[in-house]
Amino acid sequence: MKLGRKILSALAATTLFVAGAAVAQDWQPDGDIKLQIGFGAGGSTDVMGRVLAQTIEEQTGWNVIAENKTGGGGMAMFTVISKMPANNNIIGLGVNMPVMINLVKRPDEVPFNLDSFDYVGTLSRAQLALIARADAPFDNLAEMVAYSKANDGVAVGFGAAPQKLLMEVVNKQDDAGFRFVSTEGEAETQKLLLGGQILAGYSAGTHVPYLESGDFKMIAVGNNARHDYAPDTQTFVEQGYNAYVDPYWFLAMTAGTDPAAVKAIAAAVDAAVNSDAVAEIVANAASSTPLNLGSDGTKKMLVEGLDNVRVLFAD
């Protein structure tokens, strides 16, 4: 099977060469490239990471191995990457929010900071939405707050810390009395919504088919900008709550990596992120579109993101 893949990637590389789209390569990796994925097998990050690795391999001819390094939404993986000696082979793929929340909340315990890495780029931005059952008696945050006050609190499902933080901002500002129902993730949140045990909850993409089927509607957008598929739904900021969450999938390497390697890898990642294969998997797995901020843009996004997370935690 390995041989089969080698032949396949060799074929693909030839095609690309003929097409003239190959990335200019001054730098070549010494051995395998490892794309470490900070989440478990089978999740959306894992799926996207594996397709990304496959695409880079096809486009560059490098041997790219994807492996899962699960723990704390990428915290475990980035901890290890930050501690290892600088190398030109290991790239981490994680999500910014868990990293930034831990950096803000537990700066003494987290063994790294934003300078511990060289940044390669981003893969996409998650589209976080507050959704509700289609028959819920509210259509926006103001109505939801009013309904919650009148009815002993609306039960809101959340599957990750940032989602809860965003809702707590509303709770604090308007004393809405939301009751937070912790779930194992957006799949379970949707099960509880469909079963009627909660009225509203968070989703990062998998709710889109349910909008079509008429089971759910969108109350607010958690990101800083509206979503393409639902241009009429306003953000939290637009609805008067000064908070947002912009979860990005980003790639980073140990600080001190050979700049030529970072540059070549960043170029390879950029080419892959802009490929059709990655666009398709990002659409399928995260209902989003590929978005690469580049090396410098990624670092800027993280630095500014830290300030935003401090807002979320402000009393």
Binding site: M1, K2, R5, D32, I65, E67
Partner: peptide, 8 residues
Amino acid sequence: VVQLLDRS
């Protein structure tokens, strides 16, 4: 592991 499953 290495040849059949393609894992390291």
